[in-house]
Amino acid sequence: CHSECLGNCSQPDDPTKCVACRNFYLDGRCVETCPPPYYHFQDWRCVNFSFCQDLHHKCKNSRRQGCHQYVIHNNKCIPECPSGYTMNSSNLLCTPCLGPCPKVCHLLEGEKTIDSVTSAQELRGCTVINGSLIINIRGGNNLAAELEANLGLIEEISGYLKIRRSYALVSLSFFRKLRLIRGETLEIGNYSFYALDNQNLRQLWDWSKHNLTITQGKLFFHYNPKLCLSEIHKMEEVSGTKGRQERNDIALKTNGDQASCENELLKFSYIRTSFDKILLRWEPYWPPDFRDLLGFMLFYKEAPYQNVTEFDGQDACGSNSWTVVDIDPPLRSNDPKSQNHPGWLMRGLKPWTQYAIFVKTLVTFSDERRTYGAKSDIIYVQTDATNPSVPLDPISVSNSSSQIILKWKPPSDPNGNITHYLVFWERQAEDSELFELDYCLKGLKLPSRTWSPPFESEDSQKHNQSEYEDSAGECCSCPKTDSQILKELEESSFRKTFEDYLHNVVFVPRKT
């Protein structure tokens, strides 16, 4: 048989008469490798580009789960590009990614509803959504962080984005990388972005840091009482949809009607710091009717980097990364020049730590249904340095008659930039024990000054392991946590139920 035959053949030295091919099969003959313009397919066939392209389009058009959109890589027609490569849609070739590779997620039936953290986790790592997304989240724990972890990498949506009755959302900033909504599939009414009845939605994105392009379709905003109209108009300008909307697409009466839409800028007039305090004062603000001013709200939190936005980490279910302080308005003076500047002394802060701070007014709604208010920009203030805590785990070892090696770990709280350490030492008198000992005694162990690591005695271990207080009263049991108490109650309830079950099964009433 021919060298490319495997198993047997019907005619000697003829690659077209093989029972099976050793390498690849091409047009009725066995070959060692697939010549151009053919590609290896499933490690035994040679196919042309049209064959591989037909497989790709067949799966793409069917949208069946589990099928493969075949691509070409290293002269092979394979189910998908290997790690580190992405497909070129024009020629199906796998090309190296520039940075992290995109991950295209194809949605069944063309859309997916995100109504819980669990459903959001199914899209973790996706960068391109081939379909439409509907966000409908009523509640949950730590929602802002969970949504950002699972949806934060999405850069492109081919269909539309719909935010509907998501009472738990305060902001859409968890879509931190969303840059493009194509609108290839539109919501009824030709809408590519749809926001309806979101009672706590206050911000779409921080438009000073976020760009969003909507290729096709219109915007729809109705019944978002805490979303200011200025935020919607800003989205029109940034996304390129200005002029597409009709009169009733953006409701003037049901958007922002319960919001404090600040239209003035508060400026800080005085800032002073110490290692654990920050004193702030800002310019006074009074609405047209000074009785509408209820006070100020001061927001602050630790910020290692200057990239904080107002609604980071917030949701309507209680999660809030900001510390909020309510401040009463100052006494009002008739003389504008003698107006008191409101302020606040922030206490209990960490030394040498940068804080993000902003302040906003708290006002009631005027009778004319106009909203007044003022808010400052987010500023960054760093507390002063102070003395560091003591170095940890000092170790001293003498390696000769004239040297001592000293080692330690950095302090747990540096409280500033540590530039150097101060080492103090003092000579001590020799131990009298060394002169009084009889060095001729056998088995004498000389006193040693070398360091030995501390260890816990058996008594201390027994005390720590004991669940009861000892007789001397030195140790006591740790208080039980809520989960331990709940577990004990469940076990007790189970024992009672099981005992009742045994009584009912074992003891049967005697027939009379």
Score class of each variant (00 low, 15 high):
F193I: 11
H233L: 02
I378T: 11
K267F: 10
K253M: 13
R291S: 13
D326R: 02
G343M: 13
H222R: 09
S166V: 11
Y300A: 04
A251L: 07
L279V: 13
S319R: 10
E264Q: 11
E187I: 11
S274V: 03
F290M: 02
I232T: 14
L294S: 10
L279F: 07
H222Y: 03
K360R: 08
K177T: 13
P288K: 06
G313P: 06
V359L: 08
R291E: 03
K301L: 08
D206Q: 05
L392R: 04
L212C: 02
L151K: 00
L266I: 04
W322I: 02
Y160M: 14
S376F: 00
Q258D: 08
T361G: 12
G140I: 11
C126K: 01
N387L: 04
Q245M: 13
S269A: 09
T371K: 07
R182I: 07
Q354M: 00
L227C: 08
I232L: 13
T383Y: 00
T127D: 04
L201M: 02
R244M: 14
L349Q: 01
L298E: 00
I135F: 06
T254F: 06
N387H: 14
N399M: 15
T323L: 12
F290S: 12
L392Y: 14
W352Q: 15
E156F: 04
L229I: 01
L169A: 12
A385K: 11
Q199A: 06
E368C: 07
Y160G: 05
K375L: 14
I250F: 15
L227R: 00
S132A: 07
W205L: 04
L186F: 11
D377M: 07
L266F: 07
L143W: 15
A149E: 09
I327L: 04
Y355R: 00
G217E: 00
R165S: 15
L345A: 02
N130A: 11
K234W: 07
F268H: 01
L161C: 05
E231D: 15
S119W: 02
N141S: 10
R179D: 03
Y191K: 06
Q245N: 11
G131E: 01
P330L: 08
G217F: 01
S132T: 14
G243T: 11
S132Y: 01
A385S: 06
D206F: 06
E146W: 08
L212I: 07
G295I: 03
I134E: 09
C228A: 04
L172M: 14
V325W: 15
D335W: 13
L201E: 03
W286L: 11
S333G: 06
K177D: 15
R244Y: 08
R244T: 08
Q354E: 09
L180K: 11
L219S: 06
N334A: 07
L345V: 11
T383L: 02
I137N: 03
C317Y: 06
N320T: 13
P329I: 08
A144E: 14
V359K: 00
S274N: 08
L219R: 01
E156Q: 07
N263Y: 03
N320H: 10
Q306A: 14
R176S: 13
D115C: 03
H341I: 10
P336M: 02
S319A: 06
N142Y: 03
L293D: 03
N150L: 04
Q245S: 10
L227E: 00
D328E: 15
I163L: 03
I157S: 00
G110L: 09
S192T: 01
S119P: 04
N248F: 15
L392D: 05
D393C: 15
L178V: 03
T383C: 04
S166H: 02
S158M: 10
G295Q: 15
L266R: 00
G373E: 08
H222Q: 12
P336S: 07
E368V: 15
K375V: 07
A303S: 10
P342H: 13
S173H: 13
E109T: 14
K337D: 15
F221L: 10
L392S: 14
G131W: 00
F365H: 05
S401M: 05
D257Y: 08
I379F: 04
T364Q: 01
L293W: 06
T127W: 15
S132V: 02
Q403L: 08
K234N: 12
D312V: 06
N340L: 10
F358C: 01
V104N: 02
L133H: 00
F299I: 08
L161H: 00
L186V: 05
P388Y: 02
F193A: 02
W282S: 00
F174P: 06
L252E: 04
L204R: 00
Y223G: 09
D115N: 06
Q216M: 14
N224P: 00
D292I: 10
K409C: 14
G243P: 01
W344M: 02
G313D: 02
S333M: 06
F175H: 01
C317Q: 05
Y194G: 12
T213D: 14
K409R: 12
R202I: 01
F221I: 15
L265M: 10
F311W: 15
E262P: 06
